[in-house]
Amino acid sequence: MLSSLTKYRHAFLVGLQSNLVYRWNFAVRGLFSLFHLSAVFILWSAAYQGVGSGGINGFGFGPTITYFVTLLVLQFFISAFNEDYQISEDIRNGLINQFLLKPINYFGYRLSIFVAARMVSGALVLLPLAVALPFLHTYLTFPGDWGWRLALGLPAMALSALIQFSIAYCFGLLTFWFLEIQGFVILSMAVEAVLGGQMFPLDLLPAGVFAVAKFLPFYYQMYFPAAIFTGRISQADTISGLGIELCWVGILFAVNRGLWIRGLRRHTAVGG
């Protein structure tokens, strides 16, 4: 058992090294995220000028900005960046053949590299955030009941990372059927941006739509952990949400397994 884990530890270490090579790309991306954060800040501060003391949906400007800052940090710690593209390239170029011959699980291998990549990108986003903090700290307001939020939010965050990775993995495996998957990926990104709460906090949606969104995997990609940490969700809703999130992880794992088995049936390995 331990020896089988060792190979994934090595994959993780290799992933750590190769992602450190691209540290500047992550740093530049982090820097550009500050532009996004500035746009969000300007838009929402202008929107809040038109509302009364009750705020928007019961939340003031501070909690809304806190939500978007939390979202930004989460993005670099748990989002899938280009994992779908890497998997697609492995399949297209035939690099996947080597994994079929070795005693290593491709999903496990990719997941190890994903964890390494997010550790690097997560650490690097803290730098531009440290630059922005002097301007932002007066607006950041976190809830007082942080004990249970941290205890439940961290597992929710880990499960969100698994959902993000599993969806990217699914799209990568579509290469067994389609030559070009970028279109599907970017299409899905648009849906994820809205239903994942990246454009606006999902609780601003009409109640009926919000209730349906809770049962979709996108809700758990970003909004759910961000809402726990920033006080937009109650303890009871968090616990039930964790249950649904766990179900989605199971469903996505099963879909991945199914796609992998059916995809390999179509796969043709050529050459040495």
Binding site: L187, V194, L204
Partner: peptide, 28 residues
């Protein structure tokens, strides 16, 4: 597919505006 991609991204911008205006009467 790419036509849909662009259409969806345009829709996200418009939807964001629409949702914000459900809660406020003006932006600047």
């Amino acid at each position: 597919v790419w036509s849909l991609v662009e259409l969806f991204w345009m829709a996200t911008s418009l939807l964001t505006i629409s949702v914000i205006y459900e809660h406020t009467s003006s932006i600047a």
